[in-house]
Amino acid sequence: MVTPEVRFLAAEKIPTLLKRLGERYRVFAPVKVSETTVLFQEYREGVQIVLDRQTTAPAKEIIFPQTERLLSYTYRKDPEDPQKIELQVEEAPQSAPRTIIFGARPCDARGFRVFDSVFTAGPYEDPYYSSRRQQTTIVTIFCTQPQNTCFCTSVGTGPTDTEGSDLVLTPITEGYLAEAITEKGKELLQDEAFVSAQERVEEAQRAKEGIKLESELDLEGIPQRLMELFSTDFWERVSAKCISCGACTYLCPTCYCFNITDEAAGLEGERVRTWDSCMFYQYTLEASGHNPRPTKAERYRNRVGHKFSYHPINYEGMIGCCGCGRCIKSCPVSLDIRQVLREAKAYG
């Protein structure tokens, strides 16, 4: 029997579905971890899954973890000759287990597309990222209630965008209409939790058509405009209230900068890759002590410039932002990147 590519998934079936999938995959889903925070966590029975809102942090961590062990090392002293030290190195495996991200948003999926252009499309391929990416199936929920901070439609994606997803879910009464986008998605539809969609297709269509996104941004000419503003005092003005923390970058689905350090404890240690942020002073601090981005103005310029100018210029027009709005919503001083871009157009 051939499974149709459109099926219905009842909301009440989700826990058993995830449990079953958990036998073959690592399954991540949005879990309520405190009164106000929802995070992707490995699914366990009994957790509270929350699918009606954007998660506090994006799905980024699952494919690009905040701490990645690259290798472990041990120094061994020869008891006969303490001068002789032997170094043992054990590399971390580069092959990832099969994984499902259940309940991503179109902006999460778009975030990985931005990562792909850097980590998999060459000239250098990142083996850790690549392997996880290949092994991951993304099940995305369409956003029937975009937030005040969402502006995905302005950056080339949108609340019903299927790009980068393997299976998409449209919320309808008592469940979701599931549509397979890729072969990986079709494979999931084989599960018995997905049943005939029958007349629900139309309801889903209406749900999609009813979606309204308040925030629109005109980004025409922005890549060049930001270049023109490079050496002006525009950046000092717009970054005046920024406190130069890492909340926006660490919660951003399209920020991928990292640091590599050796973390030693006695005679053994690990070489790890950890997230880094261009909003931090240390990020560009050079060994000589010189820092080309000494103040938050240069650092904020880099964050906006990278996403809306350098990235589209280097990667065939793809904006390095998925419009998720987390940097606005989670910013301690509510610095609004949309407003900065509007002002950039009007400045001078």
Partner: peptide
């Protein structure tokens, strides 16, 4: 557990004066 070491707490603190250092 859910801390992401973003240092928003540090940078928002008016008396955390080392900041960049």
């Amino acid at each position: 557990q859910r801390c992401i070491r973003c240092y928003a707490c540090r940078n928002a603190c008016p008396l955390c004066v080392c900041q960049d250092f």
